[in-house]
Design a protein around this nucleic acid. Structure first.
Length: 555
RNA sequence: GGGGCCAUCGUCUAGGGGUUAGGACAGGUGGUUCUCAGCCAUCAAACCGGGGUUCGAAUCCCCGUGGCCCUGCCA
């Protein structure tokens, strides 16, 4: 039993009053710190409603948020975090907020933001405040709140808690090369006289603003699932807060917005634990109360080392699951099952069940593997247990058998139909997830299998970089790709027909690809590469270089 | 390299000082069935290792080991 309250950083103590640390008398207390068994061993009678200790101020309404970064396809990890934040807030009569963290100007795109919102809507996770519907703390897009962050930066500078740093990227790179993988920034600008720094800044010299991290001592804070966590300041970097483009980094933005938006519970991925000390320090310097921190385990790949879920090894795009025919309620149920189960152990449960029964402290901490087999089983249960034939028909239409989609397919097959009954065979690839694949058919004359794998990988990357998945764009992209790879168009397209349809001939590729959609198309490419033997890390690295040479840098 | 976090069947998990360590997916076998799926039954399958505390440790503590994450003007 750690000596809880005593050693805490002063800021840390403001989460709860010291009393909530020990599992003192009777009720209340004990759920937050969970040094093994402390929380779980609590008497059943106290399980129910007592959550006062989780809220900084007892009168405050619970507010949680999902804060995705619009830099790619909507990720199942985002849905996972959203689900727990949503269920927790709703279970406490609270509010759930959607905030867009688009502070990376280079990578953020509007298309990605729209796709993320659309994916969450499809899942049925409804936010109470967000960039599309507004709310009392608008705007909910960080790129529109730059003045807010700048104000905090000024306060930090004025208080001597931050400093301007004029180091160039080149210098930083050289420094990192010199000191290897040791701890971060060498703090070269930390002791620059303020007058000099202000003069240079006023003269328009580009610079960033960094946080002044204590040189000694340590920081303690509490995680709802793990109890107290301590970290030496010596292992914390003088983190950049404001980039030279005037945008904040995650750390400044998240602290500022979580406070200003009244977020009471920060429920997010475990990957952030190491950053909490910086955040704690910012809360302290800015004079703000800490929220409750709750770090959820990371979803893992089904590989030997259980690495963090990645699109390299797993479908991670919500859009893929949608197109592959998973029901949103099954996907949510499955995500909810990652680390948590209903109190009675039932595996099939709805979001409403979760809202009614979720207790964050019952989440298990081992990183769960996102196991497609179990997801399929669960999805099957929903299909056969919850839907009448009539309702299923409805779902099929919504999914991919609706008139608006069929209307697009008909013109492609019409020239190829001898009888109406050819329809089924010809269009089957539009309505499948995977397609039967005979790898022996996959080849490009004059190229080795390894070269073919590389070509498919580069096509995969190119498709991933395409902002608009439409026939004309695909046409242009694939012609350009063939040329860059020194292939005739038909040499490139021929294997693509096989990869995408499982056949040597199909409906016209560009149009078909558009209808098929990026998620399924890219999945089939990945499966084909795997069927051909896959690519090693070394090969991928070489391909990245070749790709950069031929098409420019990726992402 | 440094730091943080984590550790029950192959997988998701229950159990948190005394249990035949329970359930589910996947796998095996059998039943039902025109086939398959489903459904039912059944089998196999786990407490990372070593110390300590204790009458008793999967459970509490320590040390290992392993895994993950962080170590960016990404988030």
């Amino acid at each position: 039993m750690p000596n809880a309250g005593a050693g805490l950083d002063s800021a840390g103590a403001s989460v709860d009053h010291p009393g909530s640390f020990g599992r003192g008398r009777g009720h209340g207390a004990r759920q937050s710190a969970r040094p093994r068994g402390a929380a779980r061993a609590r008497p059943a009678a106290s399980r129910l409603p007592d959550h006062r200790h989780e809220v900084p101020m007892s009168s405050t309404i619970v507010r949680t948020r999902i804060a995705p970064s619009p830099t790619g396809d909507p990720h199942v990890g985002t849905a996972y975090q959203a689900l727990f934040n949503y269920a927790f807030a709703k279970g406490r009569g609270g509010r759930f907020i959607l905030r867009i963290e688009d502070t990376d100007q280079a990578r953020s795109t509007q298309a990605s933001e729209l796709a993320i919102l659309e994916s969450l809507r499809w899942l049925g996770i409804q936010w109470d405040e967000g960039p599309d519907i507004g709310g009392p703390h608008a705007p909910y897009r960080q790129s529109e709140r730059l003045a807010v962050y700048r104000e905090q930066v000024e306060r930090l500078l004025a208080g001597g808690h931050a400093y301007r740093c004029f180091c160039t990227r080149e210098r930083l790179e050289a420094m990192r090369r010199r000191q290897g993988a040791e701890s971060g920034y060498d703090r070269a600008c930390r002791d620059m006289p303020v007058a000099e720094a202000e003069r240079r800044a006023a003269a328009g010299e580009t610079h960033v603003v960094r946080m002044k991290i204590p040189l000694e001592g340590d920081c303690g804070f509490r995680d709802l699932l793990r109890g107290e966590i301590r970290k030496d300041w010596a292992s914390v970097d003088d983190q950049v807060l404001l980039k030279s483009d005037g945008f904040p980094t995650y750390h400044l933005a998240v602290v500022t917005d979580d406070h200003l938006m009244g977020v009471t519970h920060v429920i997010r991925g475990e990957e952030w634990i190491n950053s909490v000390p910086k955040h704690v320090k910012l809360y302290e310097h800015l004079g703000w109360d800490l929220p409750v921190f709750c770090h959820l385990p990371l979803l893992r790949n089904n590989d030997k080392n259980r690495t963090k879920l990645s699109k390299r090894k797993n479908p991670t795009s919500i859009g893929y699951y949608r197109r592959a025919g998973f029901l949103p309620e099954a996907l949510l149920n499955f995500l909810g099952m990652m680390g948590w189960l209903m109190p009675d152990g039932e595996e099939k449960f709805s979001v409403a069940d979760m809202v009614a029964h979720l207790e964050l402290e019952r989440i298990s901490l081992g990183g769960p593997i996102f196991d497609l087999d179990k997801l399929k089983w669960l999805n099957g249960r929903y299909i056969r247990e919850d839907l009448s034939a009539e309702a299923l028909l409805e779902r099929l239409a919504e999914w991919g058998l609706g008139r608006e989609r069929l209307v697009r397919i008909v013109p492609l097959v019409q020239p190829r139909l001898e009888t109406l009954s050819d329809w089924g065979y010809l269009t089957a690839p539009f309505f499948a997830d995977a397609v039967p694949l005979d790898p022996t058919l996959l080849r490009i004359p004059g190229r080795t299998d390894e070269e073919l794998r590389g070509i498919l990988q580069m096509v995969l990357w190119r498709l991933g970089a395409l902002s608009e998945f439409t026939a004309p764009r695909l046409d242009a992209l694939l012609r350009e790709t063939a040329e860059a790879l020194e292939l005739k168009l038909r040499q490139l397209l021929q294997p693509l027909f096989i990869v995408l349809s499982g056949r040597e001939a199909w409906t016209p590729l560009f149009d078909s690809l558009e209808i098929l959609g990026p998620d399924i198309a890219r999945m089939r490419l990945r499966r084909a590469i795997a069927a051909l033997g896959g690519l090693s890390g070394k090969q991928l690295q070489a391909l990245e270089e070749e790709y950069a040479r031929r098409f420019g840098p990726r992402e």
